[in-house]
Amino acid sequence: MADTTDTFDEFLPEALRFCSPAPLVDIGANLTHASFARDLEATLRRAWAANVTTLILTGTDREHAEQAVALARRHPGLHATAGVHPHDASRWDTAQEAAMRALHRQPEVVAVGECGLDFNRNFSTPTEQERAFEAQLGLAAESGKPLFLHERDAGRRLREMLHAWRDDIADAVVHCFTADRETLYGYLDLDLHIGLTGWLCDERRGHHLRALVGEIPLDRLMVETDCPYLLPRNLPAKLKGRRHEPALLPWIVREIAHWRGMPETELAQATTATARAFFRLDETIDDHHALEEGHRDG
Results as ranks from 00 to 15, higher is better:
3 D>N: 14
8 F>Q: 11
8 F>L: 15
9 D>K: 13
14 E>S: 09
15 A>W: 13
18 F>D: 01
19 C>D: 07
20 S>W: 07
25 V>Y: 09
25 V>N: 12
28 G>D: 04
36 F>C: 11
37 A>G: 04
39 D>C: 11
41 E>N: 09
41 E>T: 15
42 A>W: 02
42 A>R: 13
44 L>N: 01
46 R>M: 09
46 R>Y: 03
47 A>S: 15
49 A>H: 11
50 A>K: 08
53 T>F: 10
54 T>C: 15
54 T>P: 15
55 L>Q: 13
58 T>G: 12
60 T>M: 09
60 T>Q: 03
65 A>F: 13
76 P>Y: 02
76 P>C: 07
77 G>P: 07
78 L>C: 06
80 A>R: 09
82 A>T: 03
84 V>G: 13
84 V>I: 15
87 H>Q: 09
87 H>P: 09
90 S>A: 15
91 R>Q: 13
93 D>G: 12
94 T>F: 06
95 A>S: 14
96 Q>V: 11
98 A>L: 10
101 R>Q: 06
102 A>R: 10
103 L>E: 05
106 Q>W: 00
108 E>W: 02
109 V>M: 09
112 V>G: 07
113 G>A: 06
115 C>L: 10
116 G>S: 08
117 L>Y: 05
117 L>T: 02
119 F>Q: 11
120 N>C: 09
121 R>E: 09
128 E>Q: 15
133 F>M: 08
134 E>L: 12
139 L>F: 01
141 A>S: 14
143 S>H: 08
144 G>W: 10
145 K>T: 11
150 H>P: 10
156 R>T: 12
158 L>I: 04
159 R>N: 00
159 R>D: 05
160 E>I: 06
161 M>V: 11
166 R>H: 10
171 D>V: 04
174 V>A: 12
176 C>P: 01
176 C>E: 04
190 L>I: 03
193 H>W: 08
198 G>H: 00
198 G>W: 01
198 G>R: 04
198 G>F: 00
202 D>A: 13
203 E>Q: 05
205 R>Y: 10
206 G>H: 03
206 G>M: 00
208 H>S: 11
208 H>W: 07
209 L>E: 03
209 L>N: 01
210 R>E: 04
214 G>W: 00
218 L>I: 13
218 L>K: 06
221 L>C: 14
221 L>F: 07
222 M>W: 02
222 M>R: 00
223 V>E: 01
223 V>H: 05
223 V>P: 02
224 E>N: 09
230 L>D: 03
233 R>V: 03
235 L>I: 00
236 P>F: 02
239 L>H: 04
240 K>N: 08
242 R>I: 00
246 P>A: 10
247 A>T: 12
247 A>H: 07
248 L>A: 04
251 W>R: 06
252 I>C: 11
252 I>P: 06
253 V>M: 10
265 T>Y: 02
265 T>N: 07
266 E>D: 13
268 A>C: 06
271 T>L: 06
271 T>F: 09
272 T>I: 02
272 T>K: 14
272 T>Y: 07
276 R>F: 04
277 A>W: 13
278 F>V: 02
278 F>T: 03
280 R>P: 00
280 R>T: 05
283 E>Q: 15
284 T>G: 08
284 T>Y: 08
287 D>R: 08
290 A>V: 05
291 L>D: 01
292 E>L: 15
292 E>G: 00
297 D>N: 12
298 G>L: 15
